[in-house]
Design a protein around this nucleic acid. Structure first.
Lengths: 129, 129
DNA sequence: ACTTGACTTGGAGTTCGCTCCAGAGAGTAC
DNA sequence: GTACTCTCTGGAGCGAACTCCAAGTCAAGT
């Protein structure tokens, strides 16, 4: 059940360095070690890794995720703060996503215009043949 | 019609340093200067600034935008390459956007669960009164 | 003529988020 | 026991994208 850093690295496609870095800065709670000091990831640890990978992938900052973990570790009485933090980040993510959708549309329009322009050019060339 | 860097900075909410930086690295074509060496932005220059701001805002890399500008400056025969570059970036942007939409959904679910948990807690507290 | 303020350039400095490395300590294989 | 492999820690290094700074130029106002 418990996994080594090599296995977790493989499983989530994050480098061992990144996993150690994430733990060092508190982006995931501290992982337990064997008596000889080697990390032994539980399924719970893996859930944190997966969560953080997902949130980082969407662009949430390390800073805010560290804060989330800190709140989590302080226990139940921080549930409200955690919820507020999540709402704030959700709103940020939403507006960034909306901006990206608009830009996506713009890129598609631009590509369409390129298609038309190049299409016209080809026609012209054919006519010249 | 022509604008100073201060006006362009104001108009697009980009610092003067950023505008100069963008020009220096070729993210926008070179802006003409007055005889005394001061930048004088035409409406055309402003369109580039706006385009770049939009694309950077969606996360396109500086590197790829510089390449786009270079191709543009080489003229009509690069239209096809420019189109391909745009398609590539469009596809990248699309998958990033999709990832963000999935994460957005996940965040919303998580917030919902927080709402329920906190709701239950409040009820319990009330019952204890 | 001189001060003020906006602008110039080239280059150094900063922040974020990793990524790499050196040196050391275990566990396994022979 | 010694070679090999995996892992550890603390710290240095790196690339991207700005951001700041020093020293100098120029135009306008008084």
């Amino acid at each position: 059940m418990a996994m080594t850093i090599a296995e977790v690295s493989e499983r989530f496609e994050l480098s061992q360095d990144t996993l150690r870095y994430y733990e060092r800065i508190g982006l995931i709670p501290r992982v337990n070690r064997t008596k000889s000091g080697i990390r032994s990831y539980t399924e719970e640890d893996c859930k944190w890794v997966e969560f953080v990978k997902c949130m980082r992938g969407a662009g949430l900052s390390i800073e805010v995720l560290v804060e989330y973990v800190e709140l989590f570790l302080r226990g139940d009485e921080t549930a409200e703060s955690r919820k507020e933090l999540l709402i704030e980040q959700r709103d940020l993510l939403q507006s960034r996503t909306e901006e990206m959708l608009r830009t996506l549309q713009r890129l598609n329009d631009k590509i369409d215009r390129y298609e038309q322009t190049i299409g016209r050019k080809e026609k012209t060339l054919k006519r010249l043949d």
